[in-house]
Simulated assay, not measured.
Amino acid sequence: MTPASSSVRSSAHPVPGSVAAPHEPLLALDAFTVAFAARDRAVPVVHGIDLSLARGEALGIVGESGCGKSVTWLAALRLLGHGVVTSGRVLLAGRDLTTMSEREIARVRGGRIGLIFQDPTSSLNPVLTIGAQIGEALALHRGLRGEAAHAEALRLLDRVGIADGRRRLRQYPHELSGGMNQRVMIAIALAGEPEVLVADEPTTALDATIQAQILDLIRDIRRDSGMGLILISHDLGVVAELCDRIAVMYAGRIVETAPARRLLAA
């Protein structure tokens, strides 16, 4: 395969408080590195990642297990906690997330950037109802409470294909199937009306039929909302269905970036 790149689409809507260049990507990693602290030194695991996502684009991140796909984006959103050292920049519409306070980055996560994790069973809180967990996201990112939040939670469940929403909002994660819990995770990710959706292996734990339904759902949501998508996966079939462009990772580095059709054809 020969290295290739795709052009970045124009962004006509700069975010308040940021200085957006005419062709600035919506989200970009600039010489981004990740290292884990080990005794008296830092062990590098991700080496100088340069990636960009245009508005409305779907970018697939593929590579073997352990190559750094998930770690890169978890570190970029500062979700790995203490003992992680990063360098470089993470730019959202021109603003560097690495310089934000904890309060500011908390508003970005789940707000401007939605997250879907690999295992919904462990990502959802087992002692809170589905309604409480969706309601928390609505209150934090959109200021909705009471009847307004309840109505919006019902709308979100309907949007992700969960019927009998009033009953489901009163249930707990263990009362739902794996596919339904993944739909709940997508509803929570959409609650903040994000500009970018980061999906980390969103169909790994699901059977083939449910996997196809979730992929169709993500495709429909992107078409209706125009949001960007970062899809992390080791499944080339999943990436081929959803992504415009693919970046291949190996040993903590991006080794190739190309339009999806060109890369898969080669």
Score class of each variant (00 low, 15 high):
236 L>Y: 05
39 R>K: 14
174 H>A: 12
152 E>C: 07
79 L>I: 02
89 R>V: 04
234 H>L: 03
46 V>M: 08
52 S>A: 15
242 L>A: 08
223 R>M: 03
229 L>K: 01
7 S>H: 10
148 A>Q: 15
27 L>P: 10
144 L>V: 03
124 L>Y: 11
109 R>E: 05
223 R>G: 08
85 V>Q: 11
94 G>T: 00
157 L>K: 11
10 S>Q: 15
171 Q>F: 10
13 H>G: 10
179 G>C: 13
241 E>A: 15
233 S>H: 04
18 S>T: 15
105 I>H: 01
203 T>D: 00
217 L>F: 12
183 R>Y: 10
240 A>F: 13
31 A>T: 10
208 A>L: 12
222 R>E: 04
253 R>E: 15
255 V>P: 01
79 L>T: 00
175 E>V: 10
227 M>L: 14
156 L>K: 11
200 D>G: 04
113 I>F: 00
48 G>T: 13
121 T>G: 13
266 A>N: 07
162 I>P: 09
139 A>T: 09
238 V>K: 02
180 M>E: 15
4 A>D: 12
115 L>A: 01
265 A>T: 08
99 T>V: 06
169 L>V: 02
194 P>F: 06
224 D>C: 01
198 V>Q: 01
218 I>R: 05
90 V>I: 05
15 V>M: 12
51 L>E: 12
253 R>Q: 15
198 V>D: 01
80 L>R: 11
191 A>M: 11
175 E>L: 05
51 L>Y: 14
201 E>F: 06
85 V>T: 03
101 S>T: 14
16 P>S: 13
43 V>K: 09
243 C>P: 05
88 G>R: 04
4 A>K: 14
151 A>M: 07
215 L>Y: 04
253 R>L: 05
27 L>A: 07
190 L>W: 11
84 V>A: 07
117 F>N: 01
140 L>D: 08
172 Y>K: 02
142 R>P: 09
135 G>V: 03
104 E>I: 03
201 E>D: 09
158 D>P: 10
55 R>N: 07
58 A>D: 03
127 V>S: 10
162 I>L: 15
11 S>K: 03
230 I>Q: 06
142 R>T: 08
264 L>K: 10
194 P>M: 07
13 H>A: 15
255 V>K: 05
78 R>C: 01
219 R>P: 07
207 D>F: 12
